[in-house]
Structure formats: structure tokens, C-alpha cells
Design a protein around this nucleic acid. Structure first.
Length: 583
RNA sequence: GUUCCCGUAGCUCAGGUGGAUAGAGCGUUGGAUUCCUAAUCCAAAGGCCACAGGUUCGAAUCCUGUCGGGAACACCA
């Protein structure tokens, strides 16, 4: 055996060859596009092993009707290796039936490729920067950040498996006014640590207890020299300290979720390096920035202090935004957008494609940042593909009742609380069982349930069953299956292999669509098939993985079990969820 | 008022970028276990894919509009 090739890849190749032959015969035009040709399992398994829509997609280009073209394609495919028959059905589907050995080869491919089964070359040569979490460094991570964190991390892993060179990046918003608030809050805790009676935390400062240790640390490090000093003396010191401390807290929370970023980019550092000025200069030269007056906010009464001011505005209306957006404030400081724009320019210099994962509350700013990237990447000659994934809210529930959160008192549910209660794997998997753009509920009671209703549990259970079986088998001597033994595997086993064989396509499709949740749903389906097969053995001893007195068949079935376990592990790895051996 | 997301079985949700007869779980009804993990499995019932138009060989999927649910709309971050 030379290169280990997965089944769908191999047969896609066979179809390409057949279509290529039709091009050289003049049936299809030279410039025919095969872009929309797909190869997939037929909806109804009785139709065959594989189905292609090639004839329907290409009929127009061939200037003929789908069924006529299908006949010509089918004729070529019938001659191909491992193909038993190629039948035309419905409006022009071609259904292929394969030798059983084709599926058995896939079984061996899974074993041979191991952890690499599912890895694709699709994304090779394209680097992607995924920015996610980017929570403000003003406190521990809470629930609001969790879903985006998990989705971003799983998406990164998925893109890696699909062959992309991925950078996981975190943007630290350490330059805005909220960091001054943080510094003041810490200063208060610092005085408290020195023995001052600070009373209640004033409105507008962060009340959370998590700042107490930060204050103490600063008190022992700095003594009392800033206790009564004017703010301008201590503010920069406290700001830097507080941000560093908070980032340590956040990195700790992320680690609990199994998340590690490659790059932490600081907004303050961006300013220091003069990046926003560079961006503004280029944008002005190219007519994307001008000085103008903002319109009053629409749809509600304008703020009392609203008055028209001239500001440098970015022409985001050219890209479909409602209004042009200021990049600087009237006091001359950069707006968040002004800095963010420069930040994206910096990212686009290093990566071929950009993805941001944002909370839905930032939906209103998507258009302007997309506009900015579109404008800026014109300078590079070719536009940088840029995707903003919005992650919708998660409603926390407990036994069907919403969990109340009071942000004002500083009592919110943190990531750490959540993981402490239900575990990392449950949090991660559950967050991936909805498409991100749909709102979801997270019920503490339900996600720890041990039942089919709980996908995390169900998938892990399937894996644990496999491992248990393999353990049991290894007590006896291990036999690697002969071809003859593999030949004994029947339809029921092939169903399982068919599902497993879809994993590589599932990875590519999910990566292309940037939807890691598809892997979670796929794993659930695979687990269902495994459990269905497993249950056959409850009433029929000869359907068990381990069949007494038939070492050949047992070895063949065990290699199947092992392969399914491998695919479950590979999928769970993308999601960042442990594949447990025992439950 | 504007923008974005959502609307699929009684409930919670999938639906592979336009394909074949619409898919799961829960719940309901009926069945299966001496024995590899029954925390499981098999089966039945359950649908105007919110509504109305449009695009084409073909629409839950794409376009327009309407209705309903959610979110955002400052030079904040």
C-alpha cells in the first residue's frame, strides 16, 4: 500500500477522472466547472453506497439533459476500480455501489492514519488568524465570554485539522476608560489593605472581591507611598499592575476551559507603536477618512450633552454601514474603533484570512470593522477575507428556571464557578450543540444528566463502551484481523464504517462553513450507530464484538471497534473534550 | 425608526451552501436485557418547514415583503 487515501477522496478522484475523459471526448466543454459536483452518501442507503449530482450540475454546460449526461458519466464510472454498479435515479443522480472491500479498506485506513484520520490538506497554504475571547481585562471571565471562547477555540482546532496554519489571538483592551476605572478600583482595595476604612464601593467602580488580593499585593509591594498621592501619580502604575493581574486571572480561567492563545495583542502597545496614525494616514490619502460632523443618534432621544462636533470620520457608508464612524474623539484620543481598525490592519499583514468571534452585543459594529478591513486590504492589492462570527447569548437555567444574576453587586456566575460545578467537557460540548448564531439555554441540571438526552454523556459513553470492550479483549491474546476475517463483516458493520468514513468530509465541510458544531452533531450520530450495533449483541451472542470460539471474527470486529473509537477521539479532540475510557 | 440573529413535530433543536419520501432527542404508545457498561436498543404515532409572493428542471435552503421572538443602535468598550 502506498499513500493511505480515504474513501471519499479516492472516489472524488475517480469522478474527476471520468469527467476529465468526457471533456477530452468533447461531451463537456473545455472550460467546464466541476465546482458544484458533490459526492455524498445517498439519503436512503438502499440507493447505494455513494451518490453524485455531477450530471445534474453539468447538464447545462454540456447542453443536454441530466439523465442523458448521467448515462455517459455512469458508463465511465462502471469501469472504475471497486465499483459494482452505477445506476441513474431520480432527476439524474448517479448512485454507485461499491465492492465491500472498498469499505474494509477504509477501516484499515482509519487504523493506519490514527490520530491523523480526518486531517485534510484543504487549507494548506492559507493562514488564518482567529481572534476570540478578547474579554476586557477588568475581572474574571463570566458566562458571557464562555460561548465565544469555546466556539473560537473549537473553530481554530477544526481549521487546523483542515490543514490551515492557525493563529489563536487575544486582543487586550488595555487602553480605554474602563482600565482607568479598574485602576481606581484597585487603588481603593490598596488603601483598604493598608488599613483604611473604604466603606461601600462607590457607584462606577468595580465592586468585585477579586480585586482584594490585587490591592493586598500592591500594598506589600509598594508600601503606602501612593495611599494619599494625587491620582495622576499612581494611575499609570496601578493601571499596568491591574491589567497584568487581571490577564493572569483570565488566562487561568481560559486554562480551566483548556484554551491557550498563541498571541496576546495589547491595545496600549498598538498605540505606542503609532499604528492608528499609520492607518489614518493611509486612509486619508486614499479618501476613506475625512473630517465631518456626526449625525445625532437615531431612534431615541439624543443624550442631553449631545452637540455636533467635527471629527475624523471613516467612510463606512461606502460599505453599507448606516453612517460614517469616528476614529478619534473630540478630545483627540482614538476611539475604540480607530484602534481596532489599526489592529485589524496589523493582523491582515500577518495572516491570509481573518476571523473574529464576537458576542452578539457587538453586532452593531460588525459593518464598520468589515468596511475597515475591506478598505485597508485594498492597499495590499487583494482583499483579505474577513469573517465576523457573532455568538448569541446563553441563558443560564437551573431545572427550567432562569438563573438570576446581579451584576451590580459583582455577583455574577464566573467560568470558574461553572466548570467547578459541571466540568470542562460538559461546558465545552454543550456550547457546541447549537449553531452559534442561535440563542441557547444552558441548564445546569440537564447537562450533567446521564442519558441519551445529554449529548456529551452519550458520546463519551459510546467511547467508554468501546474502550471497555477492547480492555476485555486484550485479556485474551490479540489477533490482528486477516482479510478473510474482515470479509465476514456484514451489512451491520458496514453501516458503522460508512458513518465513520464520513468524518473526513465532515471536517472539510465544517471547516469551510466555519461551523464546529457540526462535528458535535456528527459525533452524536456516530455514537448512535455504535450503540445500535452494540445492542445487537444483547440478544444475539454472535453479533457481539467478542465472539467466543471465533478469533478471526472477533479480531475483525475489534478492529472495527477500535476504528470507531479512533474517530470519536479525533472528533472530540477538535471540540477539546476528553474521550474517557471509563464512566 | 434603523441594523443584525432567529422562526422546522407538543417541547429542545439538526438539516452537509438548491436535490430523491423532512431528521434526531425529550414527551406519548408498544416491545427488547442471564451474557462485551440497559445510563442502552427496536418500533409506532406526531409536519401548511411562521405567512405571502418571486427566481428554475427542483426551494426548509436563494431574493422581496409581512408577522412574531431576541439583540444592538454615542465620541462607551
Amino acid at each position: 500500500m502506498t499513500d493511505t487515501q480515504t474513501l471519499y477522496a479516492a472516489y472524488s478522484g475517480i469522478i474527476d477522472t471520468a469527467l476529465g475523459a468526457l471533456v477530452s471526448e468533447g461531451v463537456l466543454p473545455e472550460d467546464a466547472s466541476f465546482k458544484n459536483v458533490t459526492l455524498e452518501p445517498p439519503r436512503d442507503p438502499s440507493h447505494g453506497d455513494l451518490a453524485t449530482n455531477a450530471a445534474m450540475v453539468l447538464a447545462k454546460q454540456a447542453k443536454t439533459n441530466p439523465r442523458a449526461l448521467a448515462e455517459q458519466i455512469a458508463e465511465k464510472l462502471t469501469a472504475a476500480d471497486g465499483v459494482v454498479s452505477a445506476d441513474i435515479a431520480g432527476p439524474g443522480f448517479i448512485n454507485l455501489r461499491l465492492e465491500p472491500s472498498a469499505w474494509l479498506n477504509e477501516l484499515q485506513a482509519i487504523t493506519a492514519l490514527g490520530d491523523d484520520y480526518g486531517r485534510s490538506a484543504m487549507g494548506a497554504g492559507t493562514s488564518v488568524n482567529v481572534e476570540y475571547v478578547s474579554a476586557n481585562p477588568t475581572g474574571p471571565m463570566h458566562m458571557g465570554h464562555c460561548r465565544g471562547a469555546v466556539v473560537g477555540d473549537a473553530l481554530s482546532s477544526l481549521l487546523e485539522l483542515a490543514g490551515h496554519d492557525v493563529t489563536r489571538e487575544y486582543y487586550i483592551n488595555d487602553a480605554g476608560g474602563q482600565v482607568d476605572v479598574l485602576a481606581r478600583s484597585v487603588h481603593l482595595r490598596y488603601r483598604e489593605a493598608l488599613g483604611a476604612d473604604i466603606g461601600a464601593i462607590p457607584e462606577g467602580l468595580y465592586p468585585g472581591d477579586y480585586l482584594v488580593p490585587v490591592g493586598k499585593a500592591l500594598a506589600s509591594e509598594l508600601g503606602d507611598k501612593f495611599a494619599d498621592a494625587p491620582e495622576e501619580e499612581w494611575l499609570p502604575v496601578f493601571r499596568a499592575h491591574a491589567v497584568t493581574e487581571m490577564m493572569e486571572v483570565i488566562k487561568g480561567d481560559l486554562a480551566l476551559l483548556g484554551i491557550h492563545h498563541d498571541v496576546f495583542s495589547s491595545e496600549a502597545a498598538l498605540h505606542q507603536a503609532g499604528k492608528p496614525d499609520e492607518a489614518e494616514k493611509w486612509l486619508r490619502e486614499n479618501g476613506f477618512v475625512y473630517d465631518g460632523v456626526l449625525e445625532a443618534p437615531k431612534g431615541k432621544a439624543p443624550p442631553e450633552d449631545w452637540e455636533p462636533v467635527e471629527l475624523p470620520l471613516f467612510r463606512s457608508t461606502q460599505f453599507g454601514d448606516d453612517q460614517d464612524r469616528p476614529i478619534k474623539k473630540s478630545n483627540g484620543a482614538w476611539t475604540y474603533f480607530g484602534a481596532d481598525l489599526a489592529y485589524h490592519m496589523q493582523k491582515a499583514e500577518k495572516a491570509d484570512e481573518l476571523i473574529d468571534i464576537w458576542g452578539a452585543d457587538h453586532a452593531g459594529t460588525v459593518k464598520r470593522i468589515k468596511a475597515a478591513v475591506a478598505a485597508l486590504s485594498q492597499g495590499k492589492g487583494k482583499p483579505t477575507p474577513f469573517d465576523v462570527k457573532l455568538v448569541q447569548m446563553v441563558q443560564l437555567m437551573r431545572g427550567g428556571e432562569p438563573v438570576k444574576m446581579s451584576k451590580r453587586s459583582g455577583n455574577f456566575i464566573t467560568i470558574a464557578d461553572m466548570i467547578d460545578e459541571v466540568g470542562k467537557d460538559v461546558v465545552r460540548f454543550t456550547m457546541l450543540t447549537r449553531k452559534p448564531e442561535a440563542q441557547m439555554e444552558f441548564d445546569f441540571a440537564k447537562v450533567v444528566e446521564a442519558s441519551k438526552d445529554n449529548p456529551v454523556w452519550y458520546v463519551q459513553y459510546a467511547h467508554a463502551r468501546i474502550q471497555s470492550t477492547v480492555r476485555k479483549a486484550s485479556e485474551e491474546e490479540s489477533v490482528s484481523p486477516s482479510d478473510e476475517a474482515l470479509g465476514q463483516l456484514g451489512d451491520e458493520e458496514l453501516t458503522l464504517i460508512r458513518r465513520a468514513a464520513q468524518f473526513p468530509r465532515e471536517v472539510e465541510a465544517a471547516a469551510k462553513a466555519r461551523e464546529p458544531h457540526r462535528i458535535a452533531f456528527y459525533l452524536y450520530d456516530l455514537a448512535t450507530d455504535l450503540n445500535a450495533f452494540y445492542s445487537l449483541g444483547n440478544t444475539a451472542l454472535e453479533k457481539r464484538f467478542i465472539v467466543k470460539h471465533d478469533k478471526g471474527l472477533s479480531a475483525a470486529r475489534l478492529s472495527l471497534a477500535d476504528a470507531i473509537g479512533q474517530v470519536l477521539r479525533n472528533g472530540l479532540r477538535v471540540l477539546g473534550v476528553e474521550a474517557v475510557d471509563r464512566m
